[in-house]
Amino acid sequence: MAPERERMPSGATAATRPHRVRLDQPQPRRTKVLPEWDPEAFGRLSERIARFLGTGRFIVWMTVVIIIWLVWNIAAPHFLRFDPYPFIFLTLMLSLQASYAAPLILLAQNRQDDRDRVNLEQDRKQNERSIADTEYLTREVAALRTGLGEVATRDWIRSELQDLAKDLDGGRRSDGQAVFPAERAVGRDVDDR
């Protein structure tokens, strides 16, 4: 026997039917608890901060702020001092600054490593194309050299013509026959056909 299906009372509408998950329709968007951010924008911001942290200007400004902090908390009247002698609040602020600076610098370095990896891959592909082109051109030059080896050169033709001129000067070939035998006046083209 087949399992029993839920029986719907006659006249039931879609609103009164039990809710089933439909696979042919997208699910509604879930509400997110955490805020969303653009990772590229955050990465660019972290790179700008890391670049600023690595400049002399940052060191000068940080030194000026610390000096003002110390002078204020030493020379100001007691009721205006907000961080007395052990300067615990200053230590806390510097630690907080360092705890944010280190991950931002690491994030900027990771992004730079990713860019370097892409550039290295592009350079590797370009080198492979250059090597393939060089090998192709080398094969073509070798084929041209081989082909030129079979072609009559100017020096070879010159030497052949000089040998022929020497033979003509004697009027005889090396085998003793005349170079140009006497031509027959009548019907000389008959044998050529």
Rank of each mutant, 00 (worst) to 15 (best):
P3D: 13
E4D: 13
R5V: 05
H19M: 12
R22Y: 13
L23V: 02
L23S: 08
Q27S: 07
W37Q: 04
D38L: 00
D38E: 10
D38F: 05
P39G: 13
E40A: 14
R44M: 12
R48E: 09
F52Y: 13
F52D: 05
R57C: 06
R57W: 14
F58R: 06
W61F: 06
V64S: 14
V65Y: 11
I66R: 12
I66C: 07
I67K: 10
I68Y: 09
I68D: 07
V71N: 15
W72T: 14
H78L: 11
L80D: 05
F82C: 05
D83R: 01
Y85R: 13
F87Y: 10
L90F: 01
L92T: 09
M93F: 03
Q97M: 03
Y100L: 15
Y100A: 10
P103D: 01
I105A: 08
L107T: 06
A108G: 11
R111S: 01
Q112W: 04
R115I: 07
Q122Y: 01
Q126P: 01
Q126E: 09
N127L: 15
N127Q: 09
R129F: 04
I131W: 00
D133H: 05
T134N: 06
E135D: 02
T138W: 02
E140Y: 04
L144M: 05
R145V: 11
R154Q: 00
W156V: 15
Q162Y: 13
D169A: 10
R173W: 07
D175L: 15
A178I: 08
V179A: 10
F180L: 13
F180D: 13
A182L: 05
R184A: 11
A185T: 15
A185R: 12
D189S: 09
D191M: 12
D192K: 03
